[in-house]
């Protein structure tokens, strides 16, 4: 119901003019390391390291390259085994460098500790891979107003009592290069514990997804990645997604900080996924 709470936050807008502000007094900013890492059952760990920049600093290719971190030592351990991740290059995406495992694959039920050593500092984070969740059903409903688009619906039964957190991604074959998180992808079972939960999958687009952009087109083949995540991992995405929507909203409370699980001196997340994959053709 974080989804709904967020919609609540989207509510009304009193008015009026919007203008660009010329000069604001900007406080100094200390750059921090950003850890964007994940591990899934059956797959190698993947970690991207960057540095944060001052909000108003120029963005150009030089500045963005400065934000890369490619000389760190990144390792994972499950308590018994450990591995130092290897630096890979992928020009298709930004940042073009990332660290990936080559020996240890994720296993359900295990806890993984991530250690990053960079420029004399060490950062640590812990996550776990929970059992993958199961969908009850996944179906298509053609949009009554528009012939060429459709809504994708998902229903699953939540495990009672235990706190469950989920994250959902979709990938349209031929259109999306990788799995994209859906709009408000992180869901907690606070409001439907032990019950069936049904909802409409909206793709993540700029602004409010009430346009056709957030839907799927007839003829798409869509892969759905439905994952279980632990609470710290959920808190990160919950606060990140809420912050992305709150910006510009007078409704949002001042406490917009994103809750990282990577320690005090680093930003970002180290998260484990217990993933289930499903495929559906939109027709």
């Amino acid at each position: 119901m974080q989804r709904i709470s967020v919609f609540f936050l989207l509510t009304f807008y009193i008015s009026a003019c919007e203008q660009t502000v010329g000069d604001l007094d900007l406080p100094d900013y200390q750059s921090k390391i950003v850890i964007d890492g994940w591990i899934e059952q059956g797959r190698y760990a993947e970690v991207t390291l960057t540095k944060s920049a001052s909000y108003f600093a120029d963005i150009d290719s030089a500045a963005l390259r400065e934000a890369l971190v490619s000389t760190a030592k990144v390792s994972i351990s499950d308590g018994e085994n450990s591995e130092v991740l290897t630096l890979f290059r992928n020009s298709d995406k930004f940042p073009p460098f990332y660290y990936r495992g080559t020996k240890m694959r994720g296993e359900v039920g295990k806890s993984y500790k991530l250690t990053v050593e960079s420029r004399g500092e060490t950062y640590e984070a812990v996550t776990s891979i929970l059992p993958p969740p199961k969908l009850d059903s996944l179906w298509v409903e053609i949009d009554t107003e528009n012939d060429s688009t459709a809504n994708l619906w998902l229903s699953f039964k939540d495990e009672p009592v235990v706190e469950n957190y989920y994250r959902i991604f979709t990938q349209r074959q031929g259109k999306d290069k990788k799995f994209e998180a859906i709009y408000l992808s992180a869901i907690g079972d606070r409001y439907f514990d032990g019950e069936n939960f049904t909802f409409n999958i909206l793709r993540n687009t700029q602004g409010i997804p009430d346009s056709n952009e957030a839907q799927f087109s007839i003829g798409d083949t869509v892969m759905v990645r439905f994952c279980s995540i632990d609470q710290a991992h959920f808190d990160f995405w919950r606060t990140l997604e809420r912050e992305a929507i709150s910006i510009g909203n007078p409704f949002s409370s001042s406490g917009n900080e994103i809750l990282s699980n990577t320690g005090e001196n680093a930003l970002g997340v180290w998260g484990g996924y217990g993933a289930s994959y499903y495929r559906i053709i939109v027709k």
Binding site: Y29, V34, L267
Partner: peptide, 8 residues
């Protein structure tokens, strides 16, 4: 005061 990248 600052910004960073997560999942692009």
């Amino acid at each position: 005061t600052g910004r960073y990248l997560i999942e692009g």
